[in-house]
Design a protein around this nucleic acid. Structure first.
Length: 457
RNA sequence: GGCUCGAUGGCAGAGUGGUUAUGCAGCGGCCUGCAAAGCCGUGUACGCCGGUUCGACUCCGGCUCGAGCCUCCA
């Protein structure tokens, strides 16, 4: 398959270091608050990538970390008068709950920073030993000037990064672009003993330590939102390369951001839509569909219009599947994923094009005349849907929306009554029942095989 | 200011040097008791100005506008 690499700025054939084992690292959340929909674009996008890779390679190890050491967590704990662990555990759980709503599969390893302080110490020591880092006033800093390749990932001029007059330069820094690997903690701040005194890790070294421990010095794919390119990934690249003396990442993948009213959705801007809130309004699968309806590198504008369109689009796909509920797909049918779908997914994860292939299958399903045809189409839709993490629900469940069994029974009872009215050619009564259900957002669909219902989207 | 990226029909969103993206919405038809769903048909879309070319939405240059990064941020 082909992937676009941020570092080389071109799309190239993906060649793993070990064809038997693909390695992938994605930056996870800092657990100090609930996550918004923008935060979930990387987990969803890279979940899809992992699914495709697992279909194509014998083994994939996908690592996504939890950042549970951070000054924002400390601040939240202090503000709420609870322990730091309480905050990080609470929001780690919330994150997992949200991922489940979106149908994101578990990663292979989900390392926590608190469990990797020793590894972080080792990385820092290695950087000091190799002459890339220095100690100053209780801090350990990475010396940007010591690494000639610095700035290459984010296409930044190293001279400018060194000089960088924009921010107040801390007195202990040799160059303003130098960044912290270890910083001292006051008595009232959380800290870990280290060769450089009691303190806590800087903002970038954790990923270096965790990626190295779980995936090795050189990894195939590293992903994240494109707002992480600088400084986070640039710094990770510098740390890992200098600490291990090896290339860090072969393919850097970055997703575009989600916009809210033409502006990036971000916690600092305050224009966020929390996933847990949105999920009360619309199914997680609709959110996932929206996230996959644009190419992952393109920006995505969030709007009510987009939500409505996604609902209707998914209805079309589930509608085709619903017509084939009685079609049994043999478990040994083998790979039925259409070539065009595979090609689209293999072309730098072109999910919009892949979805178009899914709609082509839906049309085939709606016009199929034989069971044999339907078996093949249904298998193709289900397997393709699995790559995207869509269409895996029972269509009946999907169309019944938020109605419980008792409500469904009542609807069925009215449908039976209406069927009798229709048989009696009592159209007034039949329409009255339909209108009554319509008022409750239940839409009826008559067919040769009887009447089915769905919840209005 | 510097560095990246983008500008496609009412909306969302792929793609291509000369042929239908796809979906949503709309319109006409079929089906239906009427609907809904589905099917068939339907839209003179490619920011602006130049250039290259037999031919450009697609390549090149300039411009305008928008977004991201340059500070924590997915």
């Amino acid at each position: 398959m082909k992937l676009y690499n941020t570092e080389t700025k071109i799309k190239t054939e993906f060649v793993p270091i070990n064809p038997e084992h693909v390695t992938m690292y994605v930056c996870g959340p800092t657990v100090y608050n609930y996550c918004h929909i923008g935060n979930f674009r990387p987990p969803v996008v890279f979940d899809v990538l992992a699914r495709v890779l697992r279909a194509k390679y014998p083994k994939v190890t996908y690592v996504r970390n939890i950042t549970d050491i951070d000054d924002k967590i400390n601040a939240a704990a202090a503000e709420q008068g609870v322990s730091i662990a309480h905050i990080s555990e609470k929001f780690t759980q919330a994150y997992h709950d949200d991922l489940a709503v979106l149908g994101v599969r578990d990663v292979d390893v989900e390392p926590k920073v608190t469990e990797h302080v020793t590894e972080i110490h080792q990385e820092i020591q290695s950087l000091i030993d190799r002459g890339y880092a220095y100690e100053a006033q209780g801090h350990v800093l990475f010396s940007v000037a010591s690494y000639s390749d610095y700035g290459k990932l984010s296409k930044r001029d190293p001279e400018e990064l060194l000089a960088g007059a924009r921010v107040d330069v801390a007195t202990y820094k040799k160059d303003s672009g130098d960044f912290v690997l270890w910083k001292p903690s006051d008595d009232d701040q959380p800290g870990w003993d280290s060769p450089w005194g009691r303190g806590r890790p800087g903002w970038h070294i954790e990923c270096t330590a965790m990626a190295a421990k779980h995936l090795g010095d050189t990894i195939d794919i590293h992903g994240g939102g494109n707002d992480l390119v600088f400084p986070h990934h640039e710094n990770e690249r510098a740390q890992s390369t200098c600490s291990h003396g090896a290339k860090f990442v072969n393919y850097w993948l970055h997703n575009g951001l989600i916009n809210m009213n033409q502006e990036k959705m971000s916690k600092s801007l305050g224009n966020v839509l929390l996933l847990k809130d949105l999920a009360k309004e619309i199914p997680g699968e609709v959110i996932r569909y929206i996230l996959l309806s644009a190419h992952y590198r393109a920006p995505l504008d969030w709007s009510d219009d987009v939500i409505q369109q996604a609902k209707s689009s998914l209805e079309r796909l589930y509608g085709a599947l619903r017509k084939m509920v009685d079609v049994d797909v043999p478990s040994d049918i083998g790979n039925q994923i259409p070539r065009a779908f595979d090609d689209a997914m293999s072309d730098d994860l072109n999910t919009p094009k892949a979805l178009a292939e899914l709609f082509a299958l839906a049309k085939q399903a709606n016009t199929a005349t034989s069971i044999d045809e339907q078996v093949t189409i249904k298998a193709a839709m289900m397997q393709s849907g699995q790559w995207l993490g869509l269409l895996q629900q029972d269509p009946e469940v999907w169309f019944s929306g938020d109605r419980d069994a008792a409500q469904a029974d009542e609807i069925e009872r009215l449908i039976v009554e209406r069927a009798q009215a229709k048989a009696d050619k009592n159209w007034a009564r039949a329409d009255e029942i339909r209108d009554r259900l319509s008022a409750k957002k239940v839409v009826l669909e008559d067919s040769a095989n009887g009447t089915i219902w769905r919840i209005e989207s």
